[in-house]
Design a protein around this nucleic acid. Structure first.
Length: 265
DNA sequence: AGATTCGGCGT
DNA sequence: ACGCCGAATCT
């Protein structure tokens, strides 16, 4: 029988893949794919695998049948996005295992999207109170734990450093989730992000937490901070300018040689 | 009981 | 057409 367990490079070390051909019945000739964890537990579907691995491995591009990462699966993600949004609209919960962390908390959702179809104008409600006064889940930031950004080749990008003055509240959130929380807060609200200004929040965040602020201690921004930031922006702009310059020079040189070689019609 | 195998529902 | 998972069957 074709029952060889093979290594699966797309998964963490120790995971094995197996393909079993069905040999009788209506579905004879079809095959089933199984995965085995390093501890030997058998997995027979992507959802099951996803549940077990949690956020430690992003299976969004993982093709269960072939066992390979397929960047082209981005296309299929569009379908999933629709699906998720449909669920959200019905009040359902997003599937935290398979949903990419794309803008669940970002600005595009901060405004009401309810259409008043019974009126001829058919306008979108502009009641911003609603949007800001909705109940918020406490400590939702914990969901962000372990999330990392990566480029198309799955290379994990280096995260930013936070200034010393910014410290998280509660023992729960690491620096890593704090950065995500602050970034999300900046997206979700146009109000200033100050951190938790109530001293009580530090003692018992479960009660005193201001849910419209990220889970970090109140901080102050000094002129020094601003100057340092300005410097960083200037440096970034300078290196971008250099990169663009080098790029256009290279392109110019390339089209020139193409002309000389008669490649252009 | 646990492993294996195919059916069949839902998408 | 296929992924996923229930359950019949096998060991």
């Amino acid at each position: 029988m074709e029952k060889r367990k093979s290594d699966c490079p797309a998964l963490p070390p120790g995971w094995k893949k197996e393909e079993v051909i069905r040999k009788s019945g209506l579905s004879a000739g079809k095959s089933d794919v199984y995965y085995y964890s390093p501890t030997g537990k058998k997995f027979r579907s992507k959802p099951q695998l996803s549940r077990h691995l949690g956020n430690s491995v992003d299976l969004a591009c993982f093709d269960f049948r072939t066992g390979k990462m397929m960047p082209g699966k981005l296309q299929k993600n569009k379908q999933r996005l629709r699906h998720d949004q449909a669920n959200m609209a019905k009040g359902g919960k997003p599937d935290l295992n398979t949903t990419l962390p794309i803008r669940q908390t970002a600005s595009i959702f901060k405004q009401p999207v309810t259409k008043v179809t019974s009126h001829p104008g058919n306008k979108v409600k502009t009641d911003l109170q609603r949007a800001t006064e909705q109940p918020r889940q406490l400590f939702w930031e914990r969901r962000l734990k372990g999330l990392r950004s990566s480029d198309v080749s799955e290379e994990v990008l280096r995260t930013m450093d936070l200034p010393n003055g910014i410290q998280s509240i509660g023992l729960h959130s690491s620096d890593e989730t704090l950065l995500s929380a602050i970034a999300s807060a900046l997206h979700m609200s146009s109000a200033p992000i100050t951190g938790q200004t109530s001293v009580a929040a530090e003692k018992n965040p479960a009660i005193w937490l201001n849910t419209s602020q990220p889970l970090c201690k109140a901080f102050t921004v000094t002129d020094q901070h601003i100057r340092e930031q300005e410097l960083k922006v200037q440096q970034a702009r300078r290196s971008l300018e250099e990169a663009l310059m080098a790029n256009s020079l290279a392109q110019a040189a390339e089209s020139k040689t193409e002309l000389l070689e008669g490649k252009v019609a």
